[in-house]
């Protein structure tokens, strides 16, 4: 029997965005507070899974036409190349650099190359989680 999912679908249209925003917050708070790339990536894939549950897999594929396996590769590449910045600067592998910059809206902000490494972790986590869930969900 096909049940009517209208409440779930309508709620998802708002809640999924709030979850993704929270995952971005977790991602950026990783340096000073609890959070980081891993839990942020898991939270983002949780939002995508929520959309998958409320709608179906084809809808998610249509909304975000991403091959999640490429996302894993992009993430690993980002992390490795962040580590290689140190090598090119004459320091050991995975040396990180940081500095304070005056950005237009944000004001005085500290930027750290560890955030780029975390971004790679974020991509890998999203890619791996979505690949696992999609390949299990698609098999009959």
């Amino acid at each position: 029997m096909k049940t009517n999912d209208i409440i779930l679908q309508t709620a998802t249209k708002v809640i999924a965005f709030v979850i993704i925003l929270f995952s971005i917050r977790l991602f950026f708070s990783g340096h000073y507070y609890a959070g980081g790339g891993f839990v942020g990536g898991l939270m983002t894939s949780a939002a995508l899974v929520l959309i998958m549950i409320a709608f179906d897999m084809k809808t998610v594929e249509w909304i975000l036409p991403i091959n999640y396996r490429f996302l894993i590769g992009i993430g690993l590449l980002t992390s490795v190349s962040t580590g290689l910045i140190g090598v090119f600067m004459g320091d050991p592998f995975l040396t990180h650099y940081f500095g304070y910059f005056d950005l237009p809206i944000l004001g005085k902000t500290s930027l750290h190359t560890a955030a780029l490494f975390d971004l790679g972790v974020y991509f890998v986590v999203v890619g791996v989680t979505m690949t696992i869930i999609k390949s299990i969900g698609e098999s009959e």
Partner: peptide, 9 residues
């Protein structure tokens, strides 16, 4: 976020 999920609407 809305831009990347624009096809949702």
């Amino acid at each position: 976020i809305l831009l990347s999920f624009r096809r949702f609407f």
